[in-house]
Computed example of a mutant assay.
Amino acid sequence: MYEISAVSHFDAAHFLRGYAGKCANIHGHRWKVAIKLTGSELDDMGILVDFMDVKQVLKEVTEIFDHKLINDIPPFDQLNPTAENIAKMIFDEMKTRLYDRMQCQVNIAKVTVWESENTSAAYYEI
């Protein structure tokens, strides 16, 4: 099994509805997002998926949030914009976009979202 990963960043604010603490107030982060892809077969050049393609799609997805209030962006206008929920949304969006564009035989192993250098949440399917 082969595994590749790509990382992107965005700057955005959010607040947590119903949270009893400082995070109920609007605040911002330099968010980091990493995606891991796995697959068992390489193409004729020995590539699982072109890094440039993965980075481009990841950039398109993370640009949705860049320099915005995440709480204003669907589904987070209704859903609490926790790192866990953001990781799942990015996972789902990447899955749709990668498969639609590349028709590739890879699996998204995991999407990890960091709110800071010391805290992260991840989403993956079993």
Rank of each mutant, 00 (worst) to 15 (best):
V54S: 07
E93K: 15
N85F: 08
N107Y: 07
M102W: 14
D43S: 05
Q78A: 12
K95E: 14
I26D: 00
K36G: 04
E93M: 12
R17D: 11
M89S: 03
E93V: 10
D100L: 14
L79V: 15
M45G: 01
L16M: 11
N85E: 03
N71Q: 08
L42V: 15
G21H: 03
Q78K: 14
D100P: 00
I70H: 01
C23K: 10
D43W: 11
K110N: 09
G21R: 08
I35N: 11
I86L: 15
I70F: 04
I90F: 07
H67T: 00
G46Y: 08
Y19K: 11
W31F: 15
I26L: 15
M94C: 10
I86D: 00
P74H: 02
G21T: 07
D43K: 04
A13Q: 01
H29S: 05
E63I: 02
A109M: 14
F65L: 06
K32P: 05
V111G: 09
L98W: 03
Q103I: 00
L58C: 08
L98R: 01
M45T: 08
G21S: 07
S40Q: 12
A20Q: 12
G39H: 08
L98K: 01
N85S: 09
P75Y: 07
Q105T: 05
K110V: 11
G39I: 11
A20M: 08
R97F: 00
V111R: 07
R97I: 04
A34C: 12
Y99L: 14
Q56M: 13
E63V: 04
C23Q: 11
K22L: 13
D72N: 12
D66M: 06
H29E: 01
D66A: 05
C23D: 09
L48H: 04
R30F: 01
L37D: 05
A109G: 05
L58K: 13
G18Q: 04
R17T: 12
E93I: 07
D92G: 07
L42I: 08
E63P: 02
A24Q: 12
F76K: 00
F15D: 02
K110R: 14
L16T: 10
K95M: 13
K88A: 01
F76P: 01
S40R: 09
L42T: 07
E93A: 11
T82P: 01
G39F: 10
L16V: 13
D92C: 15
P75R: 00
G28I: 05
G18M: 06
H14T: 11
H67R: 15
P75V: 09
P81E: 05
M94V: 03
N107W: 02
R101F: 05
I90A: 06
N107F: 02
N25L: 11
N107K: 09
I47E: 03
G28P: 04
I70T: 06
E63M: 14
Q56D: 12
T112G: 06
K59Y: 13
T62E: 02
C104E: 04
G46Q: 06
F91A: 05
A83C: 11
N25A: 12
H14P: 01
E93Y: 01
V57C: 09
L79F: 07
V57N: 03
N85A: 08
T96V: 14
D72I: 08
P81L: 10
R17P: 04
R101G: 02
M89L: 09
I35P: 08
A83D: 04
I108C: 05
R97Y: 01
A20D: 14
T62Y: 03
A87C: 12
